Measured scan of single mutants.
Amino acid sequence: CSVCSEPIMPEPGRDETVRVVALDKNFHMKCYKCEDCGKPLSIEADDNGCFPLDGHVLCRKCHTARA
């Protein structure tokens, strides 16, 4: 995971895991958050999703503030 540096592995008792890929980086679902404010990001293409800027994973509000 690009945030916590832990491997993305299935939880005990499970055969599969879910990971998020954004900007060629891999994330646990729980680690997929705005780099500035820490708001959890949605994997859907909506207002709560990722608004990347200069290689950073940001929420819409933080993207607008940086732009």
Rank of each mutant, 00 (worst) to 15 (best):
C1F: 02
C1Y: 01
C1S: 01
C1V: 00
C1L: 02
S2C: 02
S2W: 05
S2P: 04
V3H: 03
V3Q: 03
V3M: 09
V3R: 06
V3E: 04
V3Y: 13
V3T: 02
C4A: 00
C4H: 00
C4S: 01
S5G: 06
E6C: 10
E6T: 07
E6K: 05
E6A: 12
P7L: 08
P7G: 11
P7A: 13
I8H: 12
I8W: 00
I8P: 02
I8E: 04
I8Q: 03
I8T: 05
M9I: 07
P10D: 14
P10L: 14
P10R: 15
P10G: 15
E11W: 02
E11V: 12
E11K: 07
E11C: 05
E11R: 06
P12H: 02
P12L: 14
P12G: 15
P12Y: 14
P12D: 15
G13D: 09
G13N: 04
D15E: 12
D15W: 04
E16N: 09
T17V: 14
T17I: 10
T17N: 08
T17A: 09
T17L: 11
T17Y: 15
V18F: 13
V18C: 14
V18N: 11
R19E: 15
R19W: 03
R19T: 09
V20I: 11
V20D: 03
V20R: 04
V21N: 07
V21H: 15
V21A: 15
V21Y: 06
V21C: 14
A22Y: 03
A22P: 04
A22S: 14
A22T: 07
L23H: 15
L23G: 15
L23Q: 14
D24T: 04
D24F: 03
D24E: 13
D24H: 10
D24M: 06
K25G: 03
K25I: 02
K25P: 00
K25Y: 03
K25H: 02
N26W: 13
N26E: 12
F27Q: 03
F27I: 08
F27K: 03
F27V: 12
H28G: 00
H28V: 01
H28I: 00
H28K: 01
M29G: 12
K30G: 11
C31K: 01
C31W: 01
Y32W: 07
Y32V: 02
Y32G: 01
Y32E: 02
K33V: 08
K33M: 10
K33T: 08
K33S: 06
C34I: 06
C34D: 02
E35K: 07
E35F: 11
E35L: 04
E35P: 01
E35Y: 11
E35Q: 08
E35M: 06
D36S: 10
D36F: 03
D36W: 06
C37A: 01
C37T: 02
P40Q: 14
P40M: 13
L41I: 05
L41D: 01
S42E: 11
S42M: 07
I43Q: 13
I43N: 15
I43K: 15
I43W: 04
E44H: 15
E44A: 07
E44S: 08
E44N: 12
E44M: 05
A45K: 15
D47Y: 04
D47Q: 08
N48S: 14
N48H: 11
N48P: 08
G49R: 13
C50D: 05
C50G: 12
F51H: 11
F51A: 08
F51S: 10
P52V: 14
P52Y: 07
P52C: 08
P52T: 13
P52S: 10
L53Y: 13
L53G: 05
L53F: 10
L53S: 07
D54K: 08
D54I: 02
D54E: 08
G55F: 04
G55S: 08
G55I: 03
G55V: 03
G55P: 03
H56V: 06
H56S: 12
V57Y: 10
V57W: 05
V57M: 08
L58I: 05
L58N: 07
L58M: 10
C59S: 00
C59A: 00
K61H: 15
K61F: 09
K61P: 11
C62F: 00
C62T: 01
C62W: 00
C62A: 01
H63G: 14
H63Y: 07
H63Q: 15
H63T: 08
H63I: 04
H63C: 10
T64S: 13
T64C: 14
T64R: 11
T64H: 11
T64N: 07
A65K: 13
A65W: 07
A65T: 13
A65V: 14
A65N: 11
A65H: 14
R66H: 05
R66L: 09
A67N: 13
